[in-house]
Nucleic acid binder design. Sequence first.
DNA 1: TCTTGTCCCATGCTATCCCATGAACGCAAT
DNA 2: ATTGCGTTCATGGGATAGCATGGGACAAGA
Lengths: 155, 155
Amino acid sequence: MDRFLSSAVNRIDAKGRVSVPGAFRALAAKRGYHELYALRALEEPALDVGGMDLLERYERQLEQANPFLRTADDMSAYVHGEGTFLKLDADGRITMSDFIREHTGITSEVGFLGRGQFFQIWEPERMRQHLADVRARLTTLRQAAAQARPSGASE
Amino acid sequence: MDRFLSSAVNRIDAKGRVSVPGAFRALAAKRGYHELYALRALEEPALDVGGMDLLERYERQLEQANPFLRTADDMSAYVHGEGTFLKLDADGRITMSDFIREHTGITSEVGFLGRGQFFQIWEPERMRQHLADVRARLTTLRQAAAQARPSGASE
DNA sequence: TCTTGTCCCATGCTATCCCATGAACGCAAT
DNA sequence: ATTGCGTTCATGGGATAGCATGGGACAAGA
């Protein structure tokens, strides 16, 4: 088990804390993430969470999204301005700051969504909606592919 | 016997566990699956279950998708967010989590359906209905073919 | 002083390990 | 064929470990 898989919803307690799902915590530990790094996703009301390797990924996305932001300085400002550290406490919980709540709309519960090399933090209802949308787009794609290849051949 | 064949229905015990049919377990072991990967099927209330090679196959497709399109992101969200690991315990049972129950409607019994290279998990009544539907479609197809080819040739 | 964030501990629930039981099946000797 | 034995398999349950959650206490900053 070496990927962030599956999804879960956990509740925020009176002090603003949430448990990170055990499976995600275990994987983060296995990868040697002593600190979690969270970045505001570019096109979604979610945060991408992972180790420092996330920065590279984010920079690549930025290049694609905005070719004018190409200088290292611009990039750095953007990446660091949109990112934050998440400190895991002794019980495996993180505190939901305003920085996170603003971008995601999170209030009382947190949705965790595995994305393979990292995971995301969502407002649960938005996460469900997002997954439904994704599913709908992929279904359409598949049906279009089936049209193009009439006989019931599955790769 | 190197394919997942046939179907079976097993009951969930008070702790939420179900036995994976012996034949499926034997094949999984033969293939070296120490962990099972399950994905919520796109167009059916079922889970596709296989080994890590199933996940890896999807991930390879993912890498080939054009990163400028939303499709790559959608596929990652689907394959990772809608997938999960299933741990077989020492007695060959798996636990039916809410993650599984939500998508399938499973409550007290589980239907296992062999699909060759993988198998599926269904709510039993839905599985029966699905099989009946498939059978009906095939019959229709065959009759249409018989019309086109009048002499009563069968096999 | 009042809030905010940590650290530490308590509790209930769920998952997991390990062992027991009984039914079904196969094999072989009678 | 029938009987009897052993094996596999589905199912049940006790005990335990891990996890999500709640709250007290303390320290630091406003």
